[in-house]
């Protein structure tokens, strides 16, 4: 790359500058609407847009004290919790045979398992609606929404955990077996701790996706409402500052969970490395 700089002609410098400006504009495009939304949530003007008359927190207070929002938050969290539990268990168990068993059509099976990600949520929603209300005669409830969301979130867990299992050194398990660990103990004390970062990342991802999921839930939850559905019913009539405040809080929440999803696995890995390194040094000191 250093040689590149010397070769750079005037045209090269112009290209570099033009692309840098372009890149910056892209970030403005990506974050502009979100930043404006957050900005307007602090604006006293009750139209929820410009002009900014004064800064205020009253829309946040209004949103936080709205009992309809309380209900929606409770339902959303309950659904997200159940979806996370189902997708982690189902996704993690499915990742093992996907990576380890002798599958003839491994790529085909993989594509089949992640197909729900590729199909628009709309189709998952309507097809499950038909199944539940038609042949099964189930009452629509938060539980039916949980099933629908799990269909969509489980493949993400499968992808994350199977990627981690792929890089897994099976010699570790053989070593544990040689030392007398049975299958359960090998799983409990060797495999699970090592793939834990991927499981945690998968859980947090499933949780975020569930928090924000709209279309599948819209069809399957019946008369209950989650936060996205509440917001949707509000914005049919345009922008309101309360929704701006609610939206900002929701954005902050999903960013927080996302940051955890990225940071936690690394923290776990780093702390484990630190422990290993520490014990290694201690052992070296003792032998010395």
């Amino acid at each position: 790359m250093a040689a590149d700089v010397e070769i750079l002609s005037r045209r090269g410098r112009v290209t570099r500058l033009a692309l840098a400006v372009y890149g910056t504009l892209i970030y403005v495009f990506l974050f502009g609407p979100i930043v404006l939304l957050v900005l307007f949530s602090f604006n006293a003007n009750r139209y929820g847009t410009f002009p900014v008359t004064a800064w205020t927190l009253k829309w946040y207070r209004a949103a936080v004290s709205d009992y309809q929002i309380h209900d929606a938050v409770a339902t959303t969290l309950k659904v997200a919790g159940e979806v996370t539990a189902i997708s982690v268990v189902v996704g993690t168990t499915a990742a093992f045979p996907l990576v380890r068993s002798r599958l003839r059509w491994r790529d085909g099976v993989r594509v089949g398992l992640v197909l729900p990600i590729m199909i628009p949520g709309l189709l998952i929603g309507v097809s499950l609606l038909v199944l539940f209300t038609g042949p099964l005669h189930w009452q629509l409830s938060p539980q039916t929404a949980v099933i629908g969301q799990s269909v969509y979130t489980t493949p993400f867990v499968i992808l994350l955990v199977s990627a981690r299992l792929q890089g897994f050194d099976r010699a570790l398990e053989r070593a544990a077996a040689d030392l007398g660990a049975n299958a359960f103990n090998r799983l409990r004390f060797v495999v699970l701790p090592l793939i834990l970062p991927a499981i945690i990342a998968g859980a947090l991802l499933a949780f975020t996706l569930s928090l924000d999921e709209f279309i599948i839930t819209y069809f399957l939850i019946g008369t209950n409402i989650t936060l996205p559905i509440f917001i949707y019913t509000q914005i049919k009539f345009g922008i309101t500052p309360e929704v701006n405040a609610l939206a900002s809080m929701l954005l902050a929440a999903s960013l927080l969970v996302l940051a955890l999803a990225f940071a936690l696995p690394q923290v776990i890995r780093a702390s484990r490395r630190a422990v290993r390194f520490g014990t290694g040094r201690r052992a070296a000191r003792i032998t010395a």
């Binding site: 979100i34 917001i231 949707y232 929701l250 954005l251 999903s254």
Partner: peptide, 8 residues
Amino acid sequence: TSYLLRVY
């Protein structure tokens, strides 16, 4: 982040 909110 939320798809709905990005449209909104």
